[in-house]
């Protein structure tokens, strides 16, 4: 049984202009101890999917209208926010994108890590402090015993993201959702943070759901990859299979847009960009949502929505192209 199994999730937002179908029928499953990457452009619904799992989206205007989110065999969708509080941080940890704004500026980092421990585990104040210092050491913050009493503004961006990781892992969750954990950081720091995440994963044996838009990050960390476009999953495959044999035109486009520095000059080709931009998801037209930007679009693409289906073991995709061949 998968650790987390999202089936047919639809999260919609009501706006002045109409209903925004941010996530529109997404299926994602994660096994224990696995690293799954969710890729896609900004606005494709990957963050909303992740936030829906723990109901961290603002409701209203957001609403999970359909689908189930099975965590260890238990559906999280019907649970109230109060019932979810026992799962938040304890079972599923969350690492956010912006380390600069995701920490409360008026509380010490120690306080912010310890409050999670004190909420979920029967520990005294002193024990919580000790465990906090231990966590800070694990995420390689120098002088952890002294730094624990410092405020977020006294840390650099990379250090703050380490604090965020310590916070997410403090209660040893079975699943950690990392929403673009390196996007806001310098390139050199990005690699360190990814290494640290990998390191922590091996130490604690948790599953990781890594959300990113950088294909480079995917290639480095993932075991399995889910590609999302405009609120839907368009392709899903083990990482080697996806890079070796991408089937959906959108995935192919994404892979071709990675700069290659390993090729020598004569083999170099122009970097390809995918033309157009993500459609607005208020009353989208019928058919495939990628069709307006797709080089291979056929008449059926604007009429009928392609279903996600298995084309090889563990490899699924949603495109009419596969049907024709």
């Amino acid at each position: 049984m998968a650790l987390l199994d999202i089936k047919g999730l639809k999260t919609h937002f009501s706006t002045d202009a109409g209903v925004l179908q941010a996530v529109d029928g997404v299926d994602i499953s994660i096994n224990r101890g696995e690293t799954l990457c969710v890729v896609g452009e900004s606005g494709c619904g990957k963050t909303v999917t992740a936030m829906s799992i723990l109901k961290l989206i603002a409701m209203p205007p957001g609403k999970i209208v359909e689908g189930e989110i099975m965590f260890e065999g238990r559906d999280l969708v019907p649970l109230s926010s109060r019932e979810l509080d026992d799962i938040r941080a304890k079972e599923i940890g969350f690492i956010f994108q912006e380390p600069m704004t995701s920490l409360n500026p008026v509380l010490t980092i120690g306080e912010q890590i310890a409050e999670s421990l004190r909420r979920h585990e029967a520990v005294t104040k002193k024990q919580a402090l000790e465990r906090t210092i231990e966590m800070l050491k694990l995420v390689q913050i120098p002088n952890a015993a002294g730094r624990v009493h410092h405020y977020p503004h006294q840390f650099s961006g990379g250090m703050r993201q380490r604090v965020m990781i310590a916070m997410a892992l403090a209660c040893r969750p079975k699943l950690v959702i990392a929403d673009e954990p390196t996007t806001a950081l310098d390139v050199t720091i990005q690699a360190q943070i990814l290494d640290l995440l990998q390191d922590m994963k091996e130490r604690f044996g948790m599953a990781v759901m890594l959300i990113t838009h950088a294909m480079g990050v995917v290639a480095e960390t993932a075991q399995r990859v889910v590609v999302m476009y405009a609120g839907k999953v368009v392709e899903e495959a083990p990482v080697d299979e996806l890079f070796g044999n991408p089937r959906h035109p959108y995935t192919q486009g994404l892979i071709r847009s990675i700069p290659r520095i390993d090729l020598d000059a004569e083999h170099k080709t122009r970097l390809e960009a995918i033309g157009g931009s993500v459609p607005i998801l208020i009353n989208p037209p019928p058919g495939c949502r990628f069709a307006p930007r797709c080089k291979h679009a056929m008449s059926i693409c604007t009429e009928q929505e392609p279903r996600l289906r298995e084309i090889a073991p563990g490899h699924r995709m949603a495109c009419h192209l596969g049907d024709a061949s």
Binding site: D85, G93, F96, Q112, R119
Partner: peptide
């Protein structure tokens, strides 16, 4: 949101 993700209530 971070605080809510900790299950604080």
């Amino acid at each position: 949101t971070t605080a809510r993700a900790k299950g604080l209530g």
